Simulated scan of single mutants.
Amino acid sequence: MDRIPEVAVIGAGIVGLCTAYALVERSAAVRLYESGVPGHGQSSGQSRIFRHAHDDARLVEFTRQGRAVWDEWADKLGAELVSQDGVVALGTPVPERLRILQDVGGMPVRAVDSTELRARMPLLADYQGPAMLDEGGGAIRTRTAIESLAGALGDRVVTEEVISVHPTDHGTVEVLSAAGREQYATAVVCAGLHTARLARGVGLSLPVQPAAHVRLTFQVGGAPPQRVACLQDSSGDFGEVGVYAAPYPGNSRYAVGLSQTVQVREDGSFADPHALVALNDRARVYVSRALPGLDPEPVEYLHCWVTSLPWSEDGMAVWEADGIFFAAGHNLFKQAPRLGRALAGAAVGEGLEEDLRPAAALGRPR
């Protein structure tokens, strides 16, 4: 009998791509399944925020380690993957998050006054409340990351929809796809909205909460600033609590989203079909108040699914059953290289990190 390939990875969003790439680093044979174009599901869009600030010190440390992996892979892939312009955060959560960051250590973070805030975030309206700067954060170059990883993986990426993944009676894992039936030593499922469905096939009930999300992109008025930070606004000073924003490469466009999402029924339908439109309108009003440096008419709209866990909007976990690993959570783009390495280690028999097990509730505020 021919040697069974080592690992199947299901889902070629950023977590799946990073897991497969980390397996290649370990010289493991891997096949990455994706039903569509890599990175065009929950990982879609041109920009995301890399930030260290979280309410759980364990997750801050996980993120700090992840920043080093982003830098290492940028060197290997020959591309800028995270900008150097930092992240500014506004609002009453700033002092406590700054304390947690400083307790963990190893990150250049500090409180800033309105003068430095204006220099770092020239698009922002006047603001006098609590603010901090995470100099180690920045805008993730999402398309560059997706394309670089997919290119490095080459023909290990196959365009097939996975229908089922399950253990066999002889200790392997079988993957049934639209075009075939293959066996592997193990499998890692990071299929976003479809992860919970595939997990049910092996008797796991993941507490994943699906929702829909809106992100709008605006043109910068006038010449693009040479330097502009990402933004997290929890202040409420401009009418919204829970806003994030990140520049496109070149700083000529800025993507703005509200943290609020629209919940969906179990069958994926909306209880209120107009709720996404309302979030669009609220984001436009916020930009007109908070970001006068932007043209208030959006130039791009992104509507996508998100999946979150009940203990935190930043929560993540990995479930394990019969040699199959299921990863789930929200705001995972920034965590993907570090999470990918952890998943790769688990898949080749090194054991799953305890903080990633569901009982650890990684991300829960302490």
Results as ranks from 00 to 15, higher is better:
Ala152Asn: 08
Ala152Phe: 07
Gly154Leu: 02
Glu174Pro: 00
Thr159His: 14
Glu160Arg: 10
His170Glu: 11
Arg156Gly: 10
Glu161Phe: 06
Gly171Gln: 13
Leu176Asn: 09
Glu161Ser: 12
Val175Asp: 01
Glu174Asn: 08
Ala152Ser: 14
Glu147Gln: 14
Ser164Thr: 12
Asp169Arg: 12
Leu153Ile: 04
Ser164Asp: 15
Asp155Gly: 03
Val158Thr: 03
His166Glu: 15
Arg156Leu: 12
Thr168Asn: 11
Arg156Pro: 07
Val175Ile: 15
Glu174Leu: 13
Glu160Met: 06
Gly151Gln: 09
Glu160Ala: 13
Gly171Lys: 14
Glu161Asp: 10
Val162Arg: 00
Val157Ile: 15
Thr159Trp: 02
Glu174Tyr: 00
Val175Thr: 05
Val162Ile: 07
Glu147Ala: 09
Thr159Pro: 00
Val173His: 02
Val173Leu: 04
Val158Leu: 06
Leu176Arg: 06
Val173Phe: 02
Glu147Lys: 05
Thr168Gln: 03
Gly154Ile: 01
Pro167Asn: 11
Glu147Trp: 02
Gly151Arg: 13
Leu176Ile: 13
Asp169Lys: 06
Ala150Gly: 07
Asp169Met: 05
Ser164Ala: 15
Glu161Val: 05
Glu147Ile: 04
Gly151Cys: 10
Val162Asp: 00
Glu161Ile: 02
Ala152Leu: 09
Val175Trp: 06
Val158Ser: 05
Val173Asp: 03
Pro167Met: 08
Leu153Glu: 00
Ser164Gln: 15
Asp169Gly: 12
Ala152Trp: 03
Ile163Tyr: 10
Ser164Asn: 14
Thr168Tyr: 01
Gly171Arg: 14
Val162Trp: 00
Asp169Ser: 13
Leu149Asn: 03
Thr172Val: 12
Thr172Ile: 07
Thr172Gln: 14
Ser148Thr: 15
Glu160Lys: 04
Glu147Phe: 08
Leu176Asp: 12
Gly151Lys: 08
Gly151Ser: 14
Asp155Val: 05
Arg156Asn: 10
Thr172Tyr: 03
Gly154His: 02
Val173Met: 02
Val157Gly: 02
Glu160His: 14
Leu176Thr: 08
Leu149Asp: 10
Val165Leu: 02
Leu176Ser: 08
Gly154Glu: 01
Ala152Gln: 05
Ser148Asp: 08
Gly171Ile: 11
Leu153Ala: 00
Gly171Asn: 12
Leu176Tyr: 04
Glu174His: 05
Thr168Phe: 01
Val165Cys: 05
Ala152Thr: 10
His166Gly: 15
Gly171Phe: 11
Gly154Asp: 04
Ser164Leu: 11
Val165Phe: 00
Val158Met: 04
Val162Phe: 01
Glu147Tyr: 09
His170Gln: 08
Thr172Gly: 13
Val173Ala: 07
Val175Ala: 01
Gly151Asn: 09
Leu149Tyr: 13
Thr168Trp: 08
Leu176Val: 13
Val162Asn: 00
Ile163Ser: 10
Thr168Ser: 11
Ser164Phe: 03
His170Cys: 04
Leu149Ser: 06
